[in-house]
Design a protein around this nucleic acid. Structure first.
Length: 514
RNA sequence: GCGGGAGUAGCUCAGUUGGUAGAGCGAUAGCCUUCCAAGCUAUAGGUCGCGGGUUCGAGCCUCGUCUCCCGCUCCA
Protein backbone atom coordinates (compact mmCIF):
# COMPACT_ATOMS: atom_id res chain seq x y z
CA UNK A 1 0.00 0.00 0.00
CA UNK A 2 0.91 3.66 -0.34
CA UNK A 3 3.63 2.87 -2.83
CA UNK A 4 3.52 6.38 -4.17
CA UNK A 5 4.22 7.80 -0.74
CA UNK A 6 6.90 5.22 -0.06
CA UNK A 7 8.59 6.27 -3.26
CA UNK A 8 8.27 9.90 -2.32
CA UNK A 9 9.94 9.19 1.02
CA UNK A 10 12.72 7.27 -0.72
CA UNK A 11 13.22 10.13 -3.11
CA UNK A 12 13.42 12.60 -0.24
CA UNK A 13 16.10 10.46 1.43
CA UNK A 14 18.07 10.12 -1.81
CA UNK A 15 17.75 13.84 -2.47
CA UNK A 16 18.92 14.68 1.06
CA UNK A 17 22.10 12.73 0.45
CA UNK A 18 22.73 13.83 -3.11
CA UNK A 19 22.44 17.52 -2.28
CA UNK A 20 24.43 17.59 0.95
CA UNK A 21 21.68 17.65 3.56
CA UNK A 22 22.10 14.30 5.31
CA UNK A 23 24.70 11.55 5.02
CA UNK A 24 24.75 8.16 6.72
CA UNK A 25 27.25 8.30 9.58
CA UNK A 26 30.78 7.05 8.77
CA UNK A 27 29.55 5.90 5.41
CA UNK A 28 32.95 4.80 4.10
CA UNK A 29 32.82 2.09 6.77
CA UNK A 30 29.33 1.04 5.65
CA UNK A 31 27.62 3.43 8.00
CA UNK A 32 26.37 3.06 11.53
CA UNK A 33 22.80 1.97 12.03
CA UNK A 34 20.38 4.79 12.84
CA UNK A 35 23.07 7.46 13.04
CA UNK A 36 23.28 10.26 10.48
CA UNK A 37 25.46 13.28 9.78
CA UNK A 38 24.18 16.64 8.61
CA UNK A 39 25.95 17.88 5.50
CA UNK A 40 26.81 21.39 4.36
CA UNK A 41 23.22 22.29 3.51
CA UNK A 42 21.61 20.26 6.28
CA UNK A 43 23.69 21.98 8.94
CA UNK A 44 22.50 25.40 7.73
CA UNK A 45 18.85 24.39 7.68
CA UNK A 46 19.17 22.80 11.10
CA UNK A 47 20.84 25.89 12.56
CA UNK A 48 18.05 28.05 11.17
CA UNK A 49 15.46 25.84 12.84
CA UNK A 50 17.32 26.15 16.13
CA UNK A 51 17.44 29.91 15.79
CA UNK A 52 13.72 30.08 15.07
CA UNK A 53 12.98 28.04 18.20
CA UNK A 54 15.58 29.61 20.49
CA UNK A 55 14.56 33.14 19.65
CA UNK A 56 10.88 32.33 20.01
CA UNK A 57 11.46 30.93 23.49
CA UNK A 58 14.08 33.27 24.92
CA UNK A 59 13.61 36.50 22.96
CA UNK A 60 9.85 36.59 22.82
CA UNK A 61 9.26 35.44 26.41
CA UNK A 62 11.00 37.58 29.00
CA UNK A 63 10.35 34.90 31.62
CA UNK A 64 12.17 32.15 29.72
CA UNK A 65 15.95 31.78 29.79
CA UNK A 66 18.15 29.28 28.02
CA UNK A 67 20.87 27.00 29.33
CA UNK A 68 23.26 24.43 27.89
CA UNK A 69 23.77 21.53 30.30
CA UNK A 70 26.30 18.72 29.94
CA UNK A 71 25.40 15.39 28.39
CA UNK A 72 27.00 13.50 31.26
CA UNK A 73 25.15 13.69 34.54
CA UNK A 74 25.48 12.14 37.96
CA UNK A 75 24.18 8.55 37.72
CA UNK A 76 21.63 9.12 40.48
CA UNK A 77 19.91 11.61 38.16
CA UNK A 78 18.54 8.70 36.16
CA UNK A 79 17.34 6.84 39.21
CA UNK A 80 15.44 9.94 40.30
CA UNK A 81 14.01 10.55 36.84
CA UNK A 82 12.75 6.98 36.61
CA UNK A 83 14.78 6.16 33.52
CA UNK A 84 16.79 3.39 35.13
CA UNK A 85 13.53 1.52 35.74
CA UNK A 86 11.39 2.68 32.87
CA UNK A 87 14.06 2.28 30.21
CA UNK A 88 14.81 -1.32 31.09
CA UNK A 89 12.36 -3.36 29.09
CA UNK A 90 12.17 -7.13 29.50
CA UNK A 91 11.45 -8.52 26.04
CA UNK A 92 10.40 -12.00 24.99
CA UNK A 93 9.89 -13.52 21.54
CA UNK A 94 7.44 -16.17 20.47
CA UNK A 95 9.37 -18.58 18.28
CA UNK A 96 6.37 -19.52 16.15
CA UNK A 97 4.79 -16.16 15.40
CA UNK A 98 8.20 -14.38 15.43
CA UNK A 99 6.55 -11.59 17.36
CA UNK A 100 8.24 -9.75 20.17
CA UNK A 101 6.47 -8.68 23.33
CA UNK A 102 7.30 -6.91 26.51
CA UNK A 103 7.25 -9.66 29.11
CA UNK A 104 5.76 -7.45 31.80
CA UNK A 105 2.95 -6.42 29.47
CA UNK A 106 2.11 -10.07 28.80
CA UNK A 107 1.90 -10.72 32.52
CA UNK A 108 -0.24 -7.64 33.06
CA UNK A 109 -2.58 -8.80 30.30
CA UNK A 110 -2.90 -12.14 32.07
CA UNK A 111 -3.76 -10.34 35.27
CA UNK A 112 -6.42 -8.33 33.47
CA UNK A 113 -7.93 -11.56 32.17
CA UNK A 114 -8.15 -12.93 35.69
CA UNK A 115 -9.81 -9.74 36.84
CA UNK A 116 -12.31 -10.14 34.01
CA UNK A 117 -13.10 -13.62 35.30
CA UNK A 118 -13.89 -12.21 38.72
CA UNK A 119 -16.19 -9.65 37.12
CA UNK A 120 -18.02 -12.44 35.31
CA UNK A 121 -18.56 -14.30 38.56
CA UNK A 122 -19.84 -11.09 40.10
CA UNK A 123 -22.25 -10.51 37.22
CA UNK A 124 -23.55 -14.07 37.37
CA UNK A 125 -24.11 -13.82 41.11
CA UNK A 126 -25.74 -10.42 40.79
CA UNK A 127 -28.25 -11.89 38.36
CA UNK A 128 -28.90 -14.83 40.64
CA UNK A 129 -29.40 -12.88 43.85
CA UNK A 130 -31.11 -9.84 42.40
CA UNK A 131 -31.65 -6.94 44.81
CA UNK A 132 -30.21 -8.77 47.77
CA UNK A 133 -26.79 -8.97 46.08
CA UNK A 134 -23.94 -7.37 47.95
CA UNK A 135 -20.77 -7.11 45.97
CA UNK A 136 -18.55 -6.54 48.94
CA UNK A 137 -19.74 -9.63 50.74
CA UNK A 138 -19.62 -11.71 47.58
CA UNK A 139 -16.02 -10.99 46.60
CA UNK A 140 -14.76 -11.54 50.12
CA UNK A 141 -16.53 -14.85 50.62
CA UNK A 142 -16.98 -16.58 47.25
CA UNK A 143 -14.44 -19.38 46.99
CA UNK A 144 -13.83 -19.06 43.25
CA UNK A 145 -13.34 -15.31 43.43
CA UNK A 146 -11.01 -15.64 46.36
CA UNK A 147 -8.94 -18.13 44.44
CA UNK A 148 -8.65 -15.77 41.47
CA UNK A 149 -7.83 -12.89 43.76
CA UNK A 150 -5.13 -14.89 45.50
CA UNK A 151 -3.59 -15.73 42.15
CA UNK A 152 -3.71 -12.09 41.07
CA UNK A 153 -2.03 -10.90 44.25
CA UNK A 154 0.60 -13.57 43.95
CA UNK A 155 1.29 -12.72 40.30
CA UNK A 156 1.52 -9.02 41.04
CA UNK A 157 4.00 -9.69 43.78
CA UNK A 158 6.15 -11.92 41.59
CA UNK A 159 6.02 -9.39 38.73
CA UNK A 160 7.06 -6.57 41.02
CA UNK A 161 9.82 -8.71 42.45
CA UNK A 162 11.19 -9.76 39.05
CA UNK A 163 11.06 -6.22 37.65
CA UNK A 164 12.61 -4.72 40.75
CA UNK A 165 15.52 -7.14 40.88
CA UNK A 166 15.90 -7.43 37.13
CA UNK A 167 15.62 -11.18 37.40
CA UNK A 168 14.79 -12.20 33.86
CA UNK A 169 14.72 -15.92 34.63
CA UNK A 170 12.00 -15.31 37.21
CA UNK A 171 10.11 -13.30 34.62
CA UNK A 172 10.31 -16.19 32.18
CA UNK A 173 9.15 -18.62 34.87
CA UNK A 174 6.19 -16.37 35.59
CA UNK A 175 5.12 -16.49 31.97
CA UNK A 176 5.49 -20.28 31.94
CA UNK A 177 3.58 -20.67 35.21
CA UNK A 178 0.75 -18.45 34.02
CA UNK A 179 0.53 -20.60 30.91
CA UNK A 180 0.52 -17.53 28.69
CA UNK A 181 0.07 -18.19 24.98
CA UNK A 182 0.97 -15.90 22.11
CA UNK A 183 -2.27 -14.22 20.97
CA UNK A 184 -1.18 -14.64 17.36
CA UNK A 185 0.28 -18.12 17.06
CA UNK A 186 -1.53 -19.47 20.13
CA UNK A 187 1.61 -21.37 21.17
CA UNK A 188 3.69 -21.21 24.31
CA UNK A 189 6.99 -21.61 22.52
CA UNK A 190 8.88 -18.68 24.08
CA UNK A 191 12.49 -17.55 24.05
CA UNK A 192 14.18 -16.46 27.24
CA UNK A 193 13.35 -13.02 28.54
CA UNK A 194 16.08 -10.53 27.72
CA UNK A 195 16.65 -7.10 29.10
CA UNK A 196 17.01 -4.16 26.74
CA UNK A 197 18.48 -1.07 28.26
CA UNK A 198 17.61 2.00 26.26
CA UNK A 199 20.29 4.14 27.86
CA UNK A 200 23.85 4.16 26.56
CA UNK A 201 26.44 3.81 29.25
CA UNK A 202 30.16 4.35 29.60
CA UNK A 203 32.63 4.75 32.45
CA UNK A 204 34.01 7.90 33.91
CA UNK A 205 37.64 7.79 34.98
CA UNK A 206 39.96 5.01 33.95
CA UNK A 207 38.35 2.18 35.89
CA UNK A 208 35.76 0.25 33.94
CA UNK A 209 33.62 -0.97 36.76
CA UNK A 210 30.02 -0.64 37.82
CA UNK A 211 30.72 2.11 40.35
CA UNK A 212 32.06 4.41 37.64
CA UNK A 213 29.23 3.76 35.21
CA UNK A 214 27.58 6.84 33.77
CA UNK A 215 24.92 7.28 31.10
CA UNK A 216 24.61 9.42 28.04
CA UNK A 217 21.46 11.41 28.79
CA UNK A 218 18.32 9.88 27.23
CA UNK A 219 16.58 13.26 27.42
CA UNK A 220 17.74 16.81 27.95
CA UNK A 221 15.06 17.70 30.49
CA UNK A 222 16.98 16.48 33.55
CA UNK A 223 19.77 18.98 32.89
CA UNK A 224 17.14 21.65 33.39
CA UNK A 225 15.61 20.13 36.52
CA UNK A 226 18.91 19.71 38.35
CA UNK A 227 19.71 23.36 37.55
CA UNK A 228 16.29 24.62 38.56
CA UNK A 229 17.49 26.38 41.71
CA UNK A 230 20.73 27.65 40.12
CA UNK A 231 18.82 29.41 37.40
CA UNK A 232 15.98 30.58 39.61
CA UNK A 233 18.30 32.13 42.18
CA UNK A 234 21.00 33.59 39.93
CA UNK A 235 18.44 34.87 37.43
CA UNK A 236 16.05 36.02 40.19
CA UNK A 237 13.29 34.23 38.28
CA UNK A 238 9.73 34.47 39.49
CA UNK A 239 7.17 31.78 38.89
CA UNK A 240 5.84 31.25 36.30
CA UNK A 241 9.10 31.01 34.37
CA UNK A 242 10.75 28.69 31.88
CA UNK A 243 14.16 27.22 31.11
CA UNK A 244 14.92 26.32 27.51
CA UNK A 245 17.61 24.07 26.13
CA UNK A 246 18.77 22.63 22.81
CA UNK A 247 20.93 19.56 22.99
CA UNK A 248 21.78 16.01 22.06
CA UNK A 249 20.18 13.01 23.69
CA UNK A 250 20.87 9.32 23.17
CA UNK A 251 18.70 6.23 23.16
CA UNK A 252 19.77 2.74 22.31
CA UNK A 253 16.62 1.92 20.39
CA UNK A 254 16.07 -1.77 19.74
CA UNK A 255 14.97 -0.88 16.27
CA UNK A 256 15.70 2.60 15.03
CA UNK A 257 14.59 3.32 11.51
CA UNK A 258 12.71 5.60 9.19
CA UNK A 259 15.68 7.74 8.31
CA UNK A 260 16.23 10.59 10.78
CA UNK A 261 12.81 10.10 12.37
CA UNK A 262 14.18 7.73 14.97
CA UNK A 263 17.90 7.93 15.59
CA UNK A 264 20.13 6.65 18.36
CA UNK A 265 21.67 10.11 18.71
CA UNK A 266 19.22 12.93 18.29
CA UNK A 267 18.68 16.53 19.23
CA UNK A 268 15.90 17.93 21.37
CA UNK A 269 14.65 21.44 21.87
CA UNK A 270 13.00 21.48 25.25
CA UNK A 271 11.46 24.05 27.51
CA UNK A 272 10.41 23.32 31.07
CA UNK A 273 7.90 25.82 32.40
CA UNK A 274 7.75 26.07 36.20
CA UNK A 275 4.39 26.98 37.64
CA UNK A 276 2.31 27.06 40.78
CA UNK A 277 0.71 23.70 41.63
CA UNK A 278 -2.90 23.64 40.54
CA UNK A 279 -2.32 25.88 37.54
CA UNK A 280 -0.92 23.10 35.36
CA UNK A 281 -3.94 22.61 33.15
CA UNK A 282 -4.11 26.33 32.35
CA UNK A 283 -0.47 26.39 31.29
CA UNK A 284 -0.74 23.04 29.54
CA UNK A 285 -3.46 24.47 27.31
CA UNK A 286 -1.51 27.71 26.92
CA UNK A 287 1.59 25.95 25.64
CA UNK A 288 -0.38 23.60 23.42
CA UNK A 289 -1.81 26.60 21.62
CA UNK A 290 1.47 28.52 21.52
CA UNK A 291 3.49 25.64 20.17
CA UNK A 292 0.92 24.80 17.52
CA UNK A 293 0.98 28.40 16.34
CA UNK A 294 4.77 28.32 16.20
CA UNK A 295 4.71 25.26 13.95
CA UNK A 296 1.98 26.57 11.70
CA UNK A 297 3.80 29.86 11.19
CA UNK A 298 6.53 27.95 9.37
CA UNK A 299 4.16 27.77 6.45
CA UNK A 300 4.22 24.05 5.67
CA UNK A 301 0.42 23.96 5.72
CA UNK A 302 -1.76 24.00 8.85
CA UNK A 303 -3.55 20.83 7.75
CA UNK A 304 -0.33 18.92 8.26
CA UNK A 305 -0.46 19.32 12.04
CA UNK A 306 -2.79 17.85 14.61
CA UNK A 307 -2.95 17.15 18.33
CA UNK A 308 -2.89 13.62 19.59
CA UNK A 309 -3.73 13.04 23.25
CA UNK A 310 -1.83 10.35 25.11
CA UNK A 311 -4.05 7.66 26.53
CA UNK A 312 -1.28 5.83 28.38
CA UNK A 313 0.59 8.46 30.32
CA UNK A 314 4.32 8.17 30.97
CA UNK A 315 5.51 7.67 34.52
CA UNK A 316 5.98 11.40 35.06
CA UNK A 317 2.89 12.95 33.48
CA UNK A 318 -0.68 13.77 34.47
CA UNK A 319 -1.60 15.08 31.03
CA UNK A 320 0.23 14.70 27.75
CA UNK A 321 -0.26 15.17 24.06
CA UNK A 322 1.71 15.19 20.84
CA UNK A 323 1.72 17.63 18.03
CA UNK A 324 1.76 15.25 15.11
CA UNK A 325 2.94 16.08 11.64
CA UNK A 326 1.88 14.56 8.36
CA UNK A 327 5.19 12.89 7.49
CA UNK A 328 5.62 10.82 4.31
CA UNK A 329 4.91 7.74 6.43
CA UNK A 330 1.80 9.29 7.97
CA UNK A 331 0.93 11.42 10.98
CA UNK A 332 3.66 10.95 13.59
CA UNK A 333 4.86 12.72 16.67
CA UNK A 334 6.81 15.90 16.11
CA UNK A 335 6.59 17.53 19.51
CA UNK A 336 5.44 16.40 22.93
CA UNK A 337 3.69 18.63 25.44
CA UNK A 338 3.55 17.15 28.91
CA UNK A 339 2.27 18.21 32.25
CA UNK A 340 5.00 16.61 34.37
CA UNK A 341 3.56 17.68 37.73
CA UNK A 342 6.23 17.92 40.44
CA UNK A 343 7.44 14.41 39.65
CA UNK A 344 10.98 15.35 38.63
CA UNK A 345 11.77 18.02 41.20
CA UNK A 346 10.19 15.97 43.96
CA UNK A 347 12.30 12.96 43.11
CA UNK A 348 15.49 14.98 42.79
CA UNK A 349 14.72 16.43 46.18
CA UNK A 350 14.27 12.93 47.54
CA UNK A 351 17.41 11.44 45.97
CA UNK A 352 19.70 14.41 46.50
CA UNK A 353 18.48 15.44 49.91
CA UNK A 354 18.48 19.07 48.72
CA UNK A 355 15.40 21.23 48.92
CA UNK A 356 14.17 22.15 45.46
CA UNK A 357 11.45 24.57 46.39
CA UNK A 358 10.33 28.03 45.46
CA UNK A 359 9.29 30.66 47.92
CA UNK A 360 6.25 32.39 46.58
CA UNK A 361 6.05 35.87 48.11
CA UNK A 362 2.50 36.31 46.83
CA UNK A 363 1.13 33.95 49.43
CA UNK A 364 4.22 33.54 51.62
CA UNK A 365 4.73 29.83 51.13
CA UNK A 366 7.28 27.43 49.72
CA UNK A 367 6.37 24.71 47.29
CA UNK A 368 7.82 22.38 44.70
CA UNK A 369 6.73 23.91 41.39
CA UNK A 370 4.75 21.97 38.84
CA UNK A 371 6.16 21.70 35.34
CA UNK A 372 4.72 21.89 31.85
CA UNK A 373 7.18 20.70 29.25
CA UNK A 374 7.37 21.33 25.53
CA UNK A 375 9.80 19.07 23.70
CA UNK A 376 10.45 19.09 19.96
CA UNK A 377 12.59 16.57 18.13
CA UNK A 378 14.85 18.84 16.10
CA UNK A 379 15.67 16.08 13.62
CA UNK A 380 11.97 15.38 13.18
CA UNK A 381 11.32 19.06 12.66
CA UNK A 382 14.05 19.00 10.02
CA UNK A 383 12.41 16.00 8.38
CA UNK A 384 9.03 17.72 8.41
CA UNK A 385 10.46 20.72 6.58
CA UNK A 386 12.47 18.67 4.12
CA UNK A 387 9.73 16.22 3.26
CA UNK A 388 7.07 18.86 2.75
CA UNK A 389 9.45 21.11 0.82
CA UNK A 390 10.41 18.34 -1.59
CA UNK A 391 8.40 18.69 -4.79
CA UNK A 392 8.67 16.95 -8.13
CA UNK A 393 7.15 19.06 -10.89
CA UNK A 394 6.29 18.63 -14.53
CA UNK A 395 6.69 21.99 -16.22
CA UNK A 396 4.65 23.33 -19.11
CA UNK A 397 7.46 22.74 -21.56
CA UNK A 398 7.45 19.07 -20.57
CA UNK A 399 10.66 19.14 -18.56
CA UNK A 400 10.97 17.93 -14.97
CA UNK A 401 11.97 19.97 -11.99
CA UNK A 402 12.79 18.98 -8.43
CA UNK A 403 12.44 21.90 -6.09
CA UNK A 404 12.76 22.24 -2.33
CA UNK A 405 10.16 24.79 -1.30
CA UNK A 406 11.89 25.44 2.00
CA UNK A 407 10.45 28.50 3.77
CA UNK A 408 12.86 31.30 2.84
CA UNK A 409 13.99 32.12 6.40
CA UNK A 410 15.08 28.49 6.84
CA UNK A 411 16.78 27.95 3.48
CA UNK A 412 20.49 27.04 3.63
CA UNK A 413 21.31 29.74 1.07
CA UNK A 414 19.14 32.80 0.71
CA UNK A 415 20.35 33.89 -2.68
CA UNK A 416 22.48 32.64 -5.55
CA UNK A 417 24.40 35.22 -7.52
CA UNK A 418 24.82 34.22 -11.11
CA UNK A 419 26.57 36.11 -13.90
CA UNK A 420 24.69 35.29 -17.08
CA UNK A 421 27.97 34.62 -18.87
CA UNK A 422 31.52 34.08 -17.79
CA UNK A 423 32.86 37.12 -19.69
CA UNK A 424 32.39 40.80 -20.45
CA UNK A 425 33.00 41.75 -16.82
CA UNK A 426 29.82 40.07 -15.62
CA UNK A 427 31.61 37.85 -13.04
CA UNK A 428 33.36 40.88 -11.57
CA UNK A 429 30.09 42.75 -11.27
CA UNK A 430 28.46 39.73 -9.65
CA UNK A 431 31.27 39.45 -7.16
CA UNK A 432 30.86 43.09 -6.19
CA UNK A 433 27.15 42.52 -5.53
CA UNK A 434 27.95 39.45 -3.46
CA UNK A 435 30.39 41.42 -1.33
CA UNK A 436 27.56 43.84 -0.60
CA UNK A 437 25.12 41.12 0.44
CA UNK A 438 27.22 38.50 2.16
CA UNK A 439 27.20 40.10 5.60
CA UNK A 440 23.42 39.89 5.80
CA UNK A 441 22.45 36.99 3.57
CA UNK A 442 24.06 33.63 2.96
CA UNK A 443 25.03 33.82 -0.70
CA UNK A 444 26.00 31.20 -3.23
CA UNK A 445 28.10 32.17 -6.23
CA UNK A 446 28.25 30.18 -9.45
CA UNK A 447 29.34 30.99 -12.99
CA UNK A 448 29.67 27.58 -14.58
CA UNK A 449 27.14 26.07 -16.99
CA UNK A 450 24.06 27.42 -18.72
CA UNK A 451 21.91 29.74 -16.65
CA UNK A 452 18.90 27.42 -16.74
CA UNK A 453 20.89 24.59 -15.31
CA UNK A 454 22.19 26.80 -12.53
CA UNK A 455 18.63 27.82 -11.66
CA UNK A 456 17.65 24.16 -11.37
CA UNK A 457 20.59 23.38 -9.16
CA UNK A 458 19.52 26.14 -6.78
CA UNK A 459 15.94 24.82 -6.88
CA UNK A 460 17.26 21.47 -5.75
CA UNK A 461 18.83 22.90 -2.58
CA UNK A 462 15.95 25.26 -1.90
CA UNK A 463 17.59 28.63 -2.54
CA UNK A 464 14.60 31.00 -2.65
CA UNK A 465 16.15 33.66 -4.91
CA UNK A 466 18.61 33.89 -7.79
CA UNK A 467 20.16 37.19 -8.76
CA UNK A 468 21.26 37.22 -12.37
CA UNK A 469 23.80 39.73 -13.59
CA UNK A 470 23.42 40.44 -17.31
CA UNK A 471 24.60 43.07 -19.77
CA UNK A 472 21.89 45.47 -18.77
CA UNK A 473 23.28 45.35 -15.24
CA UNK A 474 26.45 46.98 -16.52
CA UNK A 475 24.42 49.80 -18.06
CA UNK A 476 21.84 50.69 -15.39
CA UNK A 477 22.80 48.84 -12.18
CA UNK A 478 19.74 46.61 -12.15
CA UNK A 479 19.58 42.83 -11.80
CA UNK A 480 16.86 40.26 -12.17
CA UNK A 481 15.64 38.39 -9.13
CA UNK A 482 14.24 35.00 -9.95
CA UNK A 483 11.75 33.44 -7.56
CA UNK A 484 12.26 29.75 -6.81
CA UNK A 485 8.59 28.88 -6.45
CA UNK A 486 7.07 30.81 -9.32
CA UNK A 487 10.17 30.82 -11.57
CA UNK A 488 9.18 34.41 -12.40
CA UNK A 489 11.76 37.15 -12.72
CA UNK A 490 11.65 40.73 -11.68
CA UNK A 491 14.14 43.48 -12.51
CA UNK A 492 15.19 45.59 -9.55
CA UNK A 493 17.84 48.17 -8.70
CA UNK A 494 20.92 46.70 -7.06
CA UNK A 495 20.53 49.25 -4.29
CA UNK A 496 17.10 47.82 -3.41
CA UNK A 497 18.07 44.16 -3.44
CA UNK A 498 19.37 43.86 0.09
CA UNK A 499 16.36 45.31 1.89
CA UNK A 500 13.97 43.37 -0.28
CA UNK A 501 15.63 40.02 0.36
CA UNK A 502 16.26 40.53 4.06
CA UNK A 503 12.58 41.30 4.47
CA UNK A 504 11.45 37.87 3.25
CA UNK A 505 14.43 35.82 4.41
CA UNK A 506 14.71 36.98 7.97
CA UNK A 507 13.89 34.68 10.85
CA UNK A 508 13.05 37.71 12.97
CA UNK A 509 10.30 38.65 10.53
CA UNK A 510 8.98 35.12 10.69
CA UNK A 511 8.83 35.42 14.47
CA UNK A 512 6.73 38.55 14.15
CA UNK A 513 3.98 36.50 12.51
CA UNK A 514 3.50 34.10 15.41
C1' G B 1 16.87 -8.92 17.91
C1' C B 2 13.40 -12.09 14.44
C1' G B 3 11.20 -12.62 9.38
C1' G B 4 11.23 -10.74 4.11
C1' G B 5 13.90 -7.84 0.17
C1' A B 6 18.33 -5.33 -1.60
C1' G B 7 23.84 -3.91 -2.19
C1' U B 8 28.06 -3.16 -9.52
C1' A B 9 31.14 4.52 -11.05
C1' G B 10 28.57 10.48 -7.44
C1' C B 11 23.20 8.93 -9.40
C1' U B 12 19.95 5.36 -12.34
C1' C B 13 21.03 0.80 -14.02
C1' A B 14 23.07 -3.29 -17.80
C1' G B 15 26.35 -7.44 -17.39
C1' U B 16 24.27 -14.14 -21.48
C1' U B 17 25.41 -21.34 -19.43
C1' G B 18 31.11 -18.72 -14.48
C1' G B 19 35.92 -16.37 -19.04
C1' U B 20 38.71 -11.03 -16.08
C1' A B 21 33.30 -4.61 -15.97
C1' G B 22 29.86 -1.18 -19.49
C1' A B 23 25.97 2.76 -20.72
C1' G B 24 23.21 7.21 -19.76
C1' C B 25 23.18 11.19 -16.57
C1' G B 26 26.44 13.73 -13.28
C1' A B 27 31.58 15.66 -12.08
C1' U B 28 36.25 18.26 -13.65
C1' A B 29 38.92 21.31 -17.51
C1' G B 30 38.35 23.97 -22.01
C1' C B 31 35.39 25.92 -26.24
C1' C B 32 30.54 27.92 -27.65
C1' U B 33 26.32 30.68 -25.79
C1' U B 34 22.35 37.23 -23.54
C1' C B 35 17.67 33.65 -19.17
C1' C B 36 15.07 27.93 -17.13
C1' A B 37 18.65 20.99 -16.65
C1' A B 38 19.57 17.53 -22.84
C1' G B 39 25.68 22.33 -28.13
C1' C B 40 31.10 20.56 -28.83
C1' U B 41 35.95 18.39 -27.07
C1' A B 42 38.90 16.08 -23.53
C1' U B 43 39.73 13.88 -18.66
C1' A B 44 38.98 11.51 -14.12
C1' G B 45 35.97 7.82 -11.27
C1' G B 46 34.76 0.75 -9.73
C1' U B 47 40.06 -4.89 -6.05
C1' C B 48 31.39 -5.39 -8.38
C1' G B 49 29.41 -3.97 0.33
C1' C B 50 33.28 -6.91 3.13
C1' G B 51 35.71 -11.83 4.29
C1' G B 52 36.29 -17.09 3.48
C1' G B 53 35.16 -21.45 0.16
C1' U B 54 34.40 -24.23 -4.67
C1' U B 55 36.96 -23.61 -9.55
C1' C B 56 42.31 -23.31 -14.19
C1' G B 57 39.14 -18.90 -13.65
C1' A B 58 33.80 -15.76 -9.44
C1' G B 59 30.10 -9.52 -10.37
C1' C B 60 27.57 -14.42 -11.34
C1' C B 61 27.85 -20.58 -7.42
C1' U B 62 28.36 -21.37 -1.84
C1' C B 63 29.04 -20.00 3.48
C1' G B 64 29.69 -16.12 6.87
C1' U B 65 29.40 -10.98 7.92
C1' C B 66 28.09 -5.65 7.51
C1' U B 67 24.78 -1.93 5.93
C1' C B 68 20.13 -0.18 3.95
C1' C B 69 14.67 -0.81 3.02
C1' C B 70 9.69 -3.19 4.79
C1' G B 71 7.01 -5.62 9.09
C1' C B 72 6.96 -6.81 14.70
C1' U B 73 8.46 -3.50 19.19
C1' C B 74 9.67 1.35 21.22
C1' C B 75 9.62 6.56 21.23
C1' A B 76 11.37 12.84 20.78
Amino acid sequence: MATQEDNLFKNVIAHAKEYGFIFPSSEIYDGLSAVYDYGQNGAELKNNLKEYWWKFMTLLHDNIVGIDAAIFMHPTTWKASGHVDAFNDPMIDNKDSKKRYRADVLVEDAITKMEDKIEKEVEKAAKRFGDSFNRETFVTTNARVLEYQKKIDETNARLKDAMGSGNMAAMKQLIVDLDIADPISGTKNWTDVRQFNLMFSTEIGSLADEANKIYLRPETAQGIFVNFLNVQKTGRMKIPFGIAQIGKAFRNEIVARQFIFRMREFEQMEMQFFIKPGEEMKWYEYWKAKRMKWHQTLGLGSDNYRFHDHLNLAHYANAACDIQFNFPMGFKELEGIHSRTDFDLKNHEKYSGKKLQYFDSDDNQSYIPYVVETSVGLDRLFLSVLSKAYTEEKLEDGSDRVVLRIPAPLAPHKVAILPLMKKDGLPEKAEAIMNELKYDLRCFYEEKDAIGRRYRRQDAIGTPYCITVDHQTLEDDTVTIRDRDTMKQERVKIADVKAKLIDVCSINNLLRKI
